[in-house]
Structures are given as structure tokens and as C-alpha cells.
Design a protein around this nucleic acid. Structure first.
Length: 493
RNA sequence: CGGGAUGUGGCGCAGUUGGUAGCGCGUUGCGUUCGGGACGCAGAGGUCGCAGGUUCGAGUCUUGUCAUCCCGACCA
């Protein structure tokens, strides 16, 4: 069994280094010439496309349409909503000029000082402002509502420190922006999309998540309520995997978006926004993968099966290729995506290691021995086990195997999370336990001050106030004041 | 913005008191191999981040500068 051959730093030695190594060696992404901005390589982008395709289908099924809004936002838009500007101002890239010219010294080009913009433009860190400015023109009556739009886009947040996929200056995401006639309807929308995200995370990414509400400290800048799904990585740190915001009438008021109600009165429009980003790639990697490389859930793998021929000469290669064509055909008809790697310049052993590193769920190997016996070697990535199977009915077997892998990696992640989620009732105990990682379920008095104190002293934050599960009241572990229910504390990415 | 470090073939690195720029991986060709990252032989590839200074001579000493990385601070 291949171990230690891929020069991946083991997780136990340095989890962070392991992650970085893996992203590079599995060919997912690399750092670019632009500080903080990554190049997503074809294999990594193929996974993102799978994520996109499935989410896009789910959004459309829930009545949303895609649209596209500008990359650049007038600076003045940013300060319309007070909290919003507070939250994003420090990390905005700004466009100040619109032209370059040749350097008079003859060295390259310079920004043309004569081409200064009247009003600077912000590279969008998120699109609420430009979208609500636009919605103003679309909404007059309750008959124009609801508006259910989503946009697939890139955004830019000038982060001090970046990490591939987890935090980059530019990232890809989708942002849904909806407008409603009532508070109830907007709230229902925010919750609906939270459920879509949770469904996607668990059933496609095989990542167990906890649905919850953010505390005031962690709330989106400009939101009344922020819902989120929180995932737990293998090193015991939490990762926010998606958010859905109930924005109330904040943006409608900031951009003066009113409508005539059925009763012929005027009211401001109610809003939501919700998004997930390429950060999901980071969550995917850190939830499932091991010291041998990536482990991909079959539902998101660019190809679910790779077939590797083993031969000694051209005749054997041709014979195997012919046989493999039949197998590929059967698998494809069963709806399984297959790659046949007949590249003659790489050897079988090299390919085995390579596809293991890239997390292909199932690997089939076909050599002369199998040709004679009408069998094939079947290897599953999640357990690193292999067996020789008869070729008859192989497509049924593989289909079951893929389902099994999908279920197995979810269960593994779920069991791990369960094993590191525990109740903690005293602050002293909390300080000890937080060092071990995982989710700590604690009582909290609901005040930002207490949360701030805990954060400053332990680097742990409230990941969310869970929507489901134990609702027993208690006493705050720090102040002893009443607490409505346990909330989740963790250190996070 | 504070603290630390590093810039040398594509990648990872070594380079002693200043004296002909090296190693591993990768890469190209040929041959033997091929059921878990094969081996042999032969080759290609570097203005040593950039600018100045000291010196007969600088990858090495010196001044400046730029960039990147790590630790903080910051982070929906």
C-alpha cells in the first residue's frame, strides 16, 4: 500500500502544511503572480463546476433565476448602509483611474494622472449595494415581488493573510439576493436557502453541518439575522460553510426601495442574501482527505472511476484497450463518469499513486491476468482496499460501491464530529477543552461582552446558536446569568 | 502596521577564508522495464531578485531597494 511516497506532510505532523501540500500536489490550485489571488487549475475547477452545477440546479428548483451585476460599484454606494460600510471598508480595492500612458522616462507605463475618475469605483466585496440600487428601478408594486435572483461571480476582499481556497483576496461564489413584500416571507426565504445549503453540504459534499444563527458579533454587516451552516474540520477547527441573511428593510431603506402594497399603502421591501464560495473547496479537502491525498465524494468527483491498463507491449495494450472500451461503455450507460488512462508514458505504479493523490473514488486495473480470468481489480480510495471482481455485472457493483463510498465518508466525518462535540459547563474546564479542538456546547448569557471576553481569552468564538437539538436552558458558564440554550463554541478558520 | 526569515536552472536546495556555479527532482534522447511513484547511459537548461559600492576579482563583503513567506494585529 502506498504510504509516504507522495511527499505530503502527514496531518499529525502539521495539519496546515498538509493542507497546503495537498492543494498543490493534487493539482487543485496554486498561488498566482498577484498577491493573495489564486489560479484554480483544471482539476480543481472541475470540482468547483460540479459544486456549481448542483447548487445551480437546486436554486432553480426553488424558483430562483440567475442574473449578473457589475464588478465595480460607485464608492458612494458603500456608505449608504452604515453597518455594511463598517464591515467592508477596510478591505476594499479601489479603482481611481481609467487609463495608462507611456512613462516619459521611457520605462514601461504609468497611471495617467489626467485620467482620474470623478468618483472612485470599488471592486465588489459583495453586491448588496449595487443590486439594491438596481432593484429600486424594478420594484413599484407588490405585483413586482418577490424578486428571486442569484449571481455567480467573483468578489474581492483585500485580506491581510490568505490561504488557497480558505481565504483568498479574490474568490468565486454565488450570491442570492431576494426582495419580498413581507418580513415573514423574507425570513422564510432565508431559512429555505439555509436548508438548501445544508442539504447540499450533507448529501453532495458528504460534510455534516450544524444549522444555526450567528450571534450579534458574528452577524453579516447590515443583516438583522444571519443563518449559517458550520462544519468541523479534521483538526478540530470549525469552518463556516455557508450563510443566509435576513436583511430586514435595511438595504431597502438605504436605497429607498418602496412598493405599493395590496392595501394601497407604501412600505419598504424586505430582503435576503445568501452565499457560498470556493471556500467550500477547502471544506471538502479538510473534511475527508488523508495522508495519501484527496478523498472526493463520488457525487462531486470530476471522474468517479479511473481505469488503468497494465501491459508489457503494444499488442497487450491494444487488447486491453479493446476490453476496457466495453467496460467504459457499460459504466457510462449506468451513469458513471469514467476516465481511461491509456497514457503510455506513465507507468501503472505512478498512475496508482497519482489518482490516489487526486482522490478518484474508484480505480480499476486491468492486466493480462484479468483478461484471461474475465476479472478486474477494484480499488476504493476511501478505505484503500482492493479486490478482484468478475467483469459480469461490474457496472452494478461499481454503482453500489460509489453509493457506499459517498455514505461511508459522510459517516466517518459525522462520527468524528460526534466524538469531539461535548458539553462544557465551567469556564475553567472550557479553557482546557478548547485546546483539544472540536465543538464545545456551552451556556452563554447572550451578551456580546461575554462573547468578546471568551474570544480574547481563548480565541474561541460562538460558531452558532443551533436551530435544532438540545434546547434546555441553563446558566452562562462565565457569568452565571440565565441562558436559553447551549451554543457552539470553537476555534475557527 | 509591528517581529522574524528568504530571494541561486522549471521545482526544492547547497555553495567554506571573496578565486572555473553545484546537487536532488523534473525535463530530452536511446535501451531494458511495466500488477504500487523503475533502472542504466547520454544530453539540455542559471545576467545568482534589482541598483549601486569595495576589490585585480563578488553568489559570497557593503549600502539601498523590491518581492515573497512565516508569526502577530486584522478577518461575514
Amino acid at each position: 500500500m502506498a504510504t509516504g511516497l507522495k511527499e505530503l506532510t502527514p496531518r499529525s505532523e502539521n495539519y496546515s502544511q498538509w493542507y497546503n501540500d495537498l492543494v498543490i500536489k493534487a493539482d487543485l490550485a496554486e498561488n498566482s503572480a498577484v498577491r493573495g489571488c489564486m489560479v484554480i487549475k483544471p482539476y480543481g475547477y472541475a470540482i468547483w463546476e460540479k459544486i456549481q452545477a448542483e447548487l445551480d440546479r437546486m436554486f432553480k428548483e426553488t424558483g430562483h433565476q440567475n442574473a449578473y451585476f457589475p464588478l465595480l460599484i460607485p464608492k458612494s454606494f458603500m456608505c449608504r448602509e452604515a453597518e455594511h460600510v463598517e464591515g467592508f471598508a477596510k478591505e476594499c480595492a479601489v479603482v481611481t483611474h481609467y487609463r495608462l500612458k507611456n512613462d516619459p522616462d521611457g520605462k514601461g507605463v504609468i497611471v495617467d494622472p489626467d485620467a482620474k475618475l470623478e468618483e472612485e469605483l470599488i471592486v465588489r466585496p459583495t453586491s448588496e449595494t449595487i443590486i439594491w440600487n438596481t432593484y429600486k428601478g424594478w420594484i413599484n408594486s407588490y405585483r413586482d415581488l418577490p424578486i428571486l435572483c442569484n449571481q455567480w461571480a467573483n468578489v474581492m476582499r483585500w485580506e491581510m493573510r490568505t490561504r488557497l481556497f480558505l481565504r483568498t483576496a479574490e474568490f468565486l461564489w454565488q450570491e442570492g439576493h431576494t426582495a419580498h413584500a413581507t418580513s415573514e416571507e423574507a425570513m422564510a426565504e432565508a431559512v429555505k436557502m439555509l436548508n438548501v445549503y445544508a442539504d447540499f453540504a450533507e448529501n453532495f459534499m458528504a460534510i455534516p453541518v450544524i444549522k444555526g444563527v450567528k450571534s450579534a458579533n458574528e452577524r453579516f454587516a447590515g443583516a438583522i439575522e444571519t443563518f449559517c451552516i458550520e462544519a468541523l474540520m479534521q483538526d478540530g477547527k470549525a469552518l463556516q460553510a455557508g450563510t443566509s441573511h435576513f436583511l430586514g428593510q435595511n438595504f431597502a431603506k438605504a436605497f429607498d426601495v418602496k412598493f405599493i402594497t395590496k392595501e394601497n399603502t407604501q412600505d419598504y421591501v424586505w430582503a435576503t442574501s445568501w452565499g457560498v464560495s470556493t471556500r467550500l473547496m477547502g471544506a471538502l479537502i479538510m473534511t475527508h482527505s488523508d495522508d495519501n491525498g484527496l478523498i472526493l465524494p463520488p457525487k462531486l468527483a470530476p471522474y468517479q472511476v479511473v481505469i488503468i491498463p497494465i501491459y508489457k507491449n503494444a499488442e497487450q495494450q491494444a487488447a486491453i484497450a479493446e476490453k476496457v472500451a466495453e467496460i467504459t461503455d457499460k459504466l457510462k450507460k449506468a451513469g458513471i463518469s469514467v476516465k481511461f488512462d491509456n497514457n503510455d508514458t506513465k507507468k501503472p505504479g505512478w498512475k496508482f499513486a497519482e489518482y490516489e493523490l487526486k482522490g478518484v473514488p474508484v480505480r480499476l486495473a486491468m492486466g493480462m491476468r484479468d483478461m484471461e480470468n474475465n476479472t478486474i481489480e477494484v480499488f476504493r480510495r476511501d478505505t484503500l482496499t482492493k479486490e478482484t471482481m468478475p467483469l459480469d455485472g461490474i457496472e452494478t457493483h461499481i454503482q453500489q460501491l460509489l453509493d457506499d463510498i459517498q455514505a461511508n465518508i459522510f459517516k466517518k466525518a459525522f462520527d468524528y464530529r460526534s466524538s469531539v462535540t461535548r458539553n462544557v459547563d465551567s469556564y475553567e474546564e472550557f479553557k482546557v477543552e478548547i485546546e483539544k479542538g472540536g465543538f464545545l456546547m456551552c451556556h452563554w448569557d447572550g451578551t456580546p461582552e461575554t462573547e468578546e471576553k471568551i474570544k480574547n481569552e481563548t480565541k474561541a468564538t460562538i460558531r452558532c446558536i443551533p436551530l435544532e437539538g438540545d434546547k434546555t436552558p441553563g446558566k452562562c458558564m462565565v457569568t452565571g446569568k440565565p441562558s436559553a440554550q447551549r451554543v457552539i463554541f470553537a476555534r475557527n478558520y
